[in-house]
Design a protein around this nucleic acid. Structure first.
Lengths: 348, 348
DNA sequence: AGCGTTGCAGCAAGCGCTTTCTATACAGGG
DNA sequence: CCCTGTATAGAAAGCGCTTGCTGCAACGCT
C-alpha cells in the first residue's frame, strides 16, 4: 500500500542502501545515480518512514519546546524564535527538523509527561521555557528527567528559566531580579513611597525573582514594606484586574502598582480606571516583559524589556548545535527599563 | 546503555511479548504477572522506544496542530483547547498522545513542510487551524497532502478553517461573513455612513469572508463604498496602527473603523488617540474574535465573539475519534456580536 | 605489468517493538 | 479418565530503515 524505500530502490534500479544514502546525503553517490533515485522518489511520491528511520539511526528529527501557556505571547514569541532557528538557518521554510511546541499549562505533571513523551520519541533536543515551579520534589523529578534525556543524547536547553542543578542543561536566563529592582527604583525615584505589588503564582521562580528585586529596591531606599501591599495571582489580565481592586481595598492611598508582567499591568490599568483613578496622575503602573501590546496600551506601559526573541533564537541555535553554549553553561540576559506614559510623579 | 523491553522482560522473568502486552493493555495478562512486569518497569526506569513501537505497530501517538502564528492568542486559545482534549479526556494531566503545535508563520511552504514532516512521523491526527491561503496551487497541494495523510490513516480536522475540497477532512468553520455583516450593520444602525475597513492579508480566506460580510452590510443599507476606505495589512497591532493612519490620511471624515481582528483594532485605537480623536465620540472602532484582552482595552472593544475554545475542544475530540463528526463533515459556528464601549453614535 | 588507491554500490545485520500463531496448564463435562 | 475449552505465556517473523563491511571497477603509480 504505502511506498517504501525498497519500492523506490526497485524503480531506480539500485539497492535500498543507495536510496537511503541519497536521501541522507552523507555518503558519496554518483551524480547520475542520485538523479535517478530522486526521480523515482518524486514519481512514487515517496515519504520517508520517520519511525523506521529513527529506530535504525537511533536518532530522530523531533525537537520539543515546552511552554507554560501557549496563549501567552511571552511564550509565543520565544517559541516562534526557537522554531525558526530549529527549522533551518536563515529562515529556510521548513528544514528537516520537526520543531513542535508542547503546552504544559503550567502544570508540573504535564511538564513531566511531555518530557517523557519526548524522551520516548528520542527527541533530538528539548527546550524548556519560562519560570519553573519551585516545588523541590518536582524540581528533582525534572532534573532527573533532564539527566536521562541528556544521557540518551538529547540536547537540553533552558530558555528564560533558571539553571537545573545537577544537569548538563544549558541555561539562558533573564535577570528578573535586576529588572524588578531597576523598575521599582525608577518609581521610587519619581517620588513614590506606597507601592502595591501584584505578583504571579507564588511557587514560580519568575514570580519570586521579580518580587525580590522589587523588595530590594524598597530596602535600598529605606522604605518599609507593608505586607498588605503584595497580592499574589496569575500571570494574566484578569488576575491583575482583581488584584488591583484588592490592593485598593486594602490601601486606597497607594500611588503606584507594580505588576508581575504586562498582562497583569493591563488588567491593573483597567481596574484603576474603573475606580476613577487616572494613570499616571493618581496612580502609576508598571509591567514587565515589554510585550508588543504594551507600547500602545493606554497609557503606554512603563516596563522592563526582555530579549525574548533573541534568547529564543540563541536557545534554538544551541539546541541545534549551531552555536557554542555560554561558558559554564549559563548566560543571563539583562532586561532594559522602558519608561513610558504609565509612570509619573505622584501628585499627593 | 538504554533499557529495552527485553531488559524489562528479563528482570520480570517473562517474555518480551508479555511486557509489551502489559504496557499496551490489550491482551489478557494475569494480575500477578502484570504486577511483576510493572515493578520491573519501574525499577529499571524503562521508557518505551517510540519509533520502534510506531514502526512495529504502524501507528504513532503524535498529533500535530498547525497554527499560523503561535504568538497570536487567537491560535493559542484554539491550540490549547485542542491539546487538552487530545492529551486526555477530563483534562487528565498528559494522557498518552503527544499533542504538538507547529508554527507555520502563515507561510504556505512551511505549512506543506510541516504536513510532510507529520506524515513522515505517521501522525495519528492533524488539526489545521485558522484561515487558509487562497492560492489555487497551494490549496491543491494541501488537499493532495491531506488526502495522502487520510489514506495513511491519519485523521484530519480543520478548525476555524474552510473545508478542503476533494478531501475527507472534517471542517469546523466560523461564520466570518455573517459575523462581519452583523458587526457592520450594528455600526450602520448607530448612524455611521463613512466606515473605514482594515483587512488582513489579501490572500487569506478569513480576510475575504470578513470583508465580504462588511460589504454585504453596506450594500444592504445602500451605502456605496469608497475604495479608499479599505486598507489591507497583517493581523497584528502594528498593522492596525499604520493602516488607521493611512485611512485617516485618505479620508479624515471617517466616523468608524472596522478592523479585521481585535489586535488590529487595538492598533487602530492607538492611532486614533494619537491623532487626537476620541473613541467612540469622534470615531467608533470594532474588532473581531473577542480575544481576552478586548474586554478591557480602553475603551472596551465592540467585536464579534468566536467560540475558539469550544471549536478547538470539539476538533480535538473529533481528531481523537471521541466525537462523531458533524453530518456532511462540515459544521459552521456563528459569532456573537459583543457591543461595548468602542462603538457609539457618530457626532457629526 | 603489477598493485595499492579511490570511488561507488550492494549485502546483510540489526534497531526495539508488536502480533500472529502456537504451546502449555488447568478446569470441567461426558 | 480422556477430551474440549479457556486462560495465559512464549517463539518468531517481521515493520522500514541505516550502516559497517565487502566487492569490484577504473585509475594512476612505480
Amino acid at each position: 500500500m504505502t511506498v517504501t524505500l525498497a519500492d523506490v530502490a526497485a524503480r531506480a534500479q539500485v539497492s535500498p542502501a543507495t536510496v537511503s544514502r541519497v536521501l541522507n546525503g552523507n555518503y558519496p553517490v554518483a551524480a547520475s545515480t542520485r538523479e535517478r533515485v530522486l526521480r523515482a522518489v518524486d514519481e512514487l511520491d515517496y515519504v520517508l518512514n520517520g519511525p523506521a528511520s529513527a529506530l535504525a539511526a537511533a536518532t530522530s528529527d523531533l525537537v520539543g519546546i515546552l511552554v507554560n501557556d501557549i496563549a501567552d505571547p511571552f511564550f509565543g514569541i520565544m517559541a516562534s524564535a526557537i522554531q525558526s532557528e530549529v527549522s533551518g538557518p536563515g529562515g529556510r521554510a521548513g528544514g528537516e527538523r520537526l520543531a513542535v511546541v508542547c503546552n504544559t499549562g503550567g502544570s508540573p505533571e504535564r511538564e513531566l509527561t511531555y518530557l517523557t513523551l519526548l524522551q520516548r520519541q528520542r527527541a533530538a533536543a528539548v527546550v524548556l521555557t519560562g519560570g519553573a515551579v519551585e516545588n523541590p520534589a518536582h524540581l528533582a523529578a525534572v532534573s532527573a528527567k533532564l539527566r536521562r534525556l541528556a544521557d540518551a543524547g538529547t540536547r537540553v536547553v533552558l530558555c528564560g528559566r533558571p539553571p537545573a542543578p545537577d544537569t548538563s542543561a544549558i541555561a539562558l536566563t533573564f535577570d528578573n531580579r535586576g529588572g524588578g529592582q531597576e523598575l521599582t527604583e525608577h518609581l521610587i525615584g519619581l517620588g513614590h513611597r506606597r507601592l502595591g505589588y501584584i505578583a504571579g503564582p507564588e511557587e514560580r521562580t519568575t514570580t519570586r525573582h521579580r518580587l525580590e528585586g522589587h523588595r530590594a529596591a524598597l530596602a535600598v531606599h529605606g522604605i518599609e514594606e507593608d505586607p498588605r501591599w503584595t497580592v499574589y495571582g496569575r500571570y494574566d489580565r484578569r488576575s491583575g484586574y482583581e488584584a488591583t481592586l484588592e490592593l485598593l481595598r486594602r490601601d486606597p492611598s497607594l500611588t503606584a502598582v507594580v505588576a508581575a508582567n504586562d498582562s497583569v499591568a493591563i488588567g491593573a490599568c483597567a481596574a484603576l480606571r474603573e475606580s476613577g483613578r487616572r494613570i499616571p496622575d493618581d496612580v502609576s503602573v508598571a509591567g514587565f516583559d515589554d510585550l508588543p501590546f504594551s507600547v500602545d496600551a493606554w497609557p503606554s506601559l512603563t516596563t522592563v524589556r526582555l530579549p525574548l526573541a533573541e534568547a529564543g533564537a540563541r536557545a534554538g541555535r544551541i539546541a541545534m548545535g549551531r552555536e557554542e553554549p555560554p561558558p559554564g553553561g549559563i548566560a543571563t540576559a539583562r532586561g532594559e527599563l522602558m519608561v513610558r506614559g504609565s509612570s509619573g510623579v505622584p501628585r499627593k
